[in-house]
Design a protein around this nucleic acid. Sequence first.
DNA 1: GTATATTGTTGTTATTAACAACATAAATCA
DNA 2: TGATTTATGTTGTTAATAACAACAATATAC
Lengths: 148, 148
Amino acid sequence: MDSKLQRAEALYEAVNQLIRVHQFRDRESIYCHNVSVAQCYALETLVKRGPLRLKALAEEMCLDKSTTSRVVDALLRKGYALKTLDPQDQRAVQLSLTAEGHALYSTIRKSLIAEEASMIADISDDVVDAALELLGKLTVAARARLGA
Amino acid sequence: MDSKLQRAEALYEAVNQLIRVHQFRDRESIYCHNVSVAQCYALETLVKRGPLRLKALAEEMCLDKSTTSRVVDALLRKGYALKTLDPQDQRAVQLSLTAEGHALYSTIRKSLIAEEASMIADISDDVVDAALELLGKLTVAARARLGA
DNA sequence: GTATATTGTTGTTATTAACAACATAAATCA
DNA sequence: TGATTTATGTTGTTAATAACAACAATATAC
């Protein structure tokens, strides 16, 4: 009969381990697609949130604008992103993905999802659903904690 | 009625988000205790696996020996770790923690666990247990995939 | 007893990421 | 309208993370 505290300890260990394993998985599986982890996150954010200004992208990614500027620079150099000037505001830039950028993200996403699928292949749907629920709550809680 | 593939997609999103949030959370909450994230992992590994040689520590942490050497160096400089020569093997070093090192890890661990506890405060025990089960399986699966 | 292997450190490089300073452009206000 | 302030991005600098290569010192094998 576990207490809440013991569950919290178990959760700490479980999340810790998962994060460490994923640090390596990410490096392995994203690097071989010609982009770094940060570049892949930017790619993903641009796919999901559509064309964005640099400032908006930085906010979505919780990164400093300077860091974001350099990450985007790499995507531009590699031909995965486009930078267009905003006619309404000469300071601002609109960031979007090229066809290659969209295609690359689609490829990466598919391979990562295939990995997740193979991991849950022999786990019951109920367990998966329960875990999804908690993972979501943990993320919301962690984000709230950061914001506060 | 979700399919396995949709669950895999949901899982990919959930894990992704959790990892990104934790990247920031870890930096915030560990840095203010005077050690970096990597140093904290080393501290933890030394607490759990006892005194280790540098090579063994590197293997436990899945890091290169050179990276590990420098992380340990920082812990030595800060007075959290000790390096003793192995009388049996003049090349090797035994790494252990000082009382300060043990105390620091204990403090950090407690604060991180308190965070987890506050996150699961209003989530039913069944859900937490199910999620713990899956997190464990995901970690094992991801590690197996890395090893292979 | 020489050759090979192991252990750890140092040199070098790349990514991730923040903060500060800056240039340019827009908005405000006097 | 013109001066001040604010917003947007880029560049300079610094630190952490982390790998690979080269190296020195020691240990093991042949």
